[in-house]
Design a protein around this nucleic acid. Structure first.
Length: 305
DNA sequence: TGGGGTCCT
DNA sequence: AGGACCC
C-alpha cells in the first residue's frame, strides 16, 4: 500500500500528552497517593480527573463523586488545585525547551515539539529523543507522559494516544497505513461526531479508509479543516505549527523618589499608590492578553534599595 | 459534563 | 453570527 508511504522525515513532530495529569500532579506532591485510586473534583461533586487505577474500576470523568465512591470504595477524592497544575505545566514546558526551541504549548498538559533535524545533535533516533524527554520529566517532576512521533501533527496526535499511559510510539512514513487501519475515524483529532457520521455514510470507518480516498472526493464534500486533516493523515504537513509559548514571568519595577535610607518611608500610601496602580493595570493587561492560556499569580512583590 | 476557546464559512 | 471541534 505504497500510496501512503512517505520516505524519510520531511519534518519530525512529537506530541506529548501527560497521563492523568491533574491526578499525577497530586500524586507527585503527595507520594503516598501513588498507585492508588485517586480522583480530583471534590469541590464540584463531579469527577474531573482520575488515576488509571480508578479508571480500571470503571470510574469515569463527569461522574458524580457519590457514584464514584459506590463503584470504587476507598477512592480518594481531592479538591482540585489549578495553581499547582499550572506550576507543573510550566516546569514541564521548560524541560521541553531544553530539547528543542520550537514548542507549541497546546494545552495545560499537551505540547507539540518540533524535533526536525535534531538527530545529529543528540546522536540518536527521534524515538530515543522522546525516551530522553519522557525520562527527564519523570525524574524531575515525577509525572508520567506519553509521546508520539511522526511526520505531521495529526499523525503525532494519533501516535501519542496509541500507547498510554507511559507510551512512546513512532509512526514512520512507511508504516502509516499499519497504524491508521486501527484508528476509528471519530478518534482522529479534528473529526467530530458530525463529520464522522457523514463519512460513515460513504463507508469510511477508519482513518485509513479516509486517507485512501481520492482528493476530489474530499474536496467535494468537506471544508478546509478536513482537507488539512486528510493531507496530514497521508503524511503531508498541512496544519501550521504554532510556535507559542506563554511568558513564565513578567516583572514591573518602579523607583521611588526621593531616595530614602529609612524603610518605613516607603510604605506611605501616597508613594506606593502609583506603583499599586501600575501593578493593577499590568494585571488587567495580562488577563486580557493571556486569557486562560496560563495561570497568573504573584510570585513576589519586593522592595529594594 | 460543560464552559470557554479557536478556526472557518 | 453560527457551526464544529477541541481540552
Amino acid at each position: 500500500m505504497q500510496v501512503l508511504s512517505v520516505h524519510s522525515w520531511p519534518q519530525a513532530i512529537a506530541h506529548l500528552d501527560a497521563d492523568a495529569f491533574f491526578v499525577s500532579c497530586e500524586q507527585a506532591s503527595m507520594p503516598a497517593l501513588k498507585g492508588k485510586c485517586v480522583a480530583v473534583g471534590k469541590e464540584r461533586g463531579i469527577i474531573i480527573a482520575l488515576s488509571y487505577e480508578a479508571k480500571a474500576k470503571g470510574v469515569k470523568r463527569g461522574m458524580f463523586v457519590s457514584d464514584a465512591k459506590r463503584i470504587c470504595p476507598g477512592i480518594i477524592i481531592l479538591d482540585s488545585n489549578h495553581e499547582t497544575y499550572g506550576l507543573f505545566s510550566v516546569r514541564m514546558f521548560e524541560i521541553l525547551k531544553r530539547f528543542s526551541p520550537k514548542i507549541e504549548e497546546y494545552s495545560v498538559d499537551e505540547a507539540f515539539i518540533d524535533l526536525t533535524g535534531l538527530r545529529r545533535l543528540y546522536s540518536c533516533s527521534y524515538e530515543e529523543i522522546a525516551v530522553k524527554i519522557q525520562n527527564t520529566i519523570e525524574q524531575e517532576l515525577s509525572i508520567s507522559v506519553s509521546i508520539g512521533i511522526s511526520i505531521t501533527k495529526v499523525l503525532a496526535k494519533i501516535a501519542s494516544k496509541y500507547k498510554k499511559p507511559h507510551g512512546i510510539t513512532a509512526i514512520p512514513g512507511n508504516k502509516i497505513h499499519l497504524y491508521l487501519s486501527n484508528i476509528l475515524i471519530e478518534d482522529v483529532w479534528g473529526i467530530g461526531p458530525n463529520t464522522a457520521s457523514l463519512l460513515k455514510k460513504f463507508d469510511i470507518k477508519t482513518a485509513l479508509d479516509f486517507a485512501l480516498k481520492n482528493e476530489n472526493f474530499v474536496k467535494k464534500y468537506l471544508s478546509k479543516p478536513y482537507i488539512q486533516i486528510y493531507k496530514e493523515l497521508k503524511g503531508e504537513p498541512s496544519i501550521e505549527f504554532i510556535e507559542k509559548i506563554s511568558p513564565k514571568s513578567i516583572s514591573k519595577a518602579k523607583s521611588f523618589y526621593p531616595p530614602s535610607q529609612k524603610p518605613e518611608d516607603l510604605i506611605l500610601p501616597h508613594q506606593t499608590m502609583p506603583f499599586a496602580l501600575s501593578i493593577y493595570s499590568l494585571t488587567l493587561f495580562l488577563i486580557m492578553a493571556l486569557k486562560d492560556r496560563c495561570f497568573l499569580f504573584f510570585k513576589a512583590i519586593s522592595l529594594a534599595s
